[in-house]
Design a binder for these strands. Sequence first.
DNA 1: ATCGTATATCGTCGAATAACGATTAAAGGA
DNA 2: TCCTTTAATCGTTATTCGACGATATACGAT
Lengths: 93, 93
Amino acid sequence: MNDTPQDAETFANICKALAHPARIRIVRYLKAVDQCICGEIVQILPLAQSTVSQHLKILKTAGLVRGEVEGPRTCYCLDREVLEQFKKMTAAI
Amino acid sequence: MNDTPQDAETFANICKALAHPARIRIVRYLKAVDQCICGEIVQILPLAQSTVSQHLKILKTAGLVRGEVEGPRTCYCLDREVLEQFKKMTAAI
DNA sequence: ATCGTATATCGTCGAATAACGATTAAAGGA
DNA sequence: TCCTTTAATCGTTATTCGACGATATACGAT
């Protein structure tokens, strides 16, 4: 791992995406079930659908999660590659 | 590592503390020099003294950094224990 | 006792976050 | 075709963040 300001920014961005308990729980859930639709997560978390959708968007923007539309629903899964990258960066702190 | 909502909150809190490039750079710097005073960090970062002090406070509150007053200055260092804990939690995601 | 240095804290401001309900969009089924 | 389901987006509101300058505090040195 590098140690440039840019690198710090990259790492900070992923941390930011994970800096909310709901998003941690989403990531863990996805890890456990491999993939699921948004509504499933809404069931699990004590949050409104729109709020969950927003959290998913944040995780997606950070690259940690991918979603693909399947008819009226969207199937979400972890991007394990990105997650591994993050783990490596963390280990290198 | 556990997988409770409380655990998610704990982890999210540390992520939040690291969710800013300046704070990442502070942690890395402390890792490299082992310990230093606030002014040293002010030199390194393109931020005002008060801003750096604030970032240090956030890191301290999260437990990642400890500071002990030495006369008119404060000597900061990493809490390697907490950092290791965070690394383990991250690896367990 | 005063001055200078080093930090922390306060107050402020704009920007970003988090949450929600309401609305919209896009299928799929009746 | 119309209704239902699912999810995304919009608009709003309250809160938090990030940055700064100014001020306060605490020592050490003169």
